[in-house]
């Protein structure tokens, strides 16, 4: 097991775990914090993982993930208002 892989393990256990914990409790806004943390950690994890395997072609996944989690967060900030915007 190389250093990259260790890193991936640590990110998964120490990053995604707490993010999941935040993301499944409390009101939507608290969960949103978990989602954002999860997005960042998962992106990092997916950046590290191809290094561990020596598979650069996988790097498209974290790139897309970075873009789409941003969009996903916007979805919620836009539509999660206590009263929806514009009514």
């Amino acid at each position: 097991m190389n250093a990259w892989l260790w890193c991936a393990n640590v990110l998964l256990a120490g990053g995604l775990g707490p993010a999941a914990w935040l993301g499944m409790r409390g009101d939507p806004v608290r969960r949103l914090v978990g989602l954002e943390l999860g997005g960042v950690v998962a992106t990092l994890l997916l950046l590290v993982f191809p290094q561990a395997l020596g598979q650069p072609s996988y790097l498209i996944v974290p790139l897309v993930m970075a873009l789409l989690t941003f969009v996903g967060t916007l979805v919620f900030t836009r539509l999660l208002a206590p009263r929806p915007a514009g009514t």
């Binding site: 995604l16 969960r31 999860g38 994890l45 996944v61």
Partner: peptide, 15 residues
């Protein structure tokens, strides 16, 4: 709330 958690579930599936 479910929608936010669903999104996170989607991320975990991706990983």
């Amino acid at each position: 709330r479910q929608a936010v958690t669903l999104s996170l579930f989607g991320l975990s599936l991706t990983v």
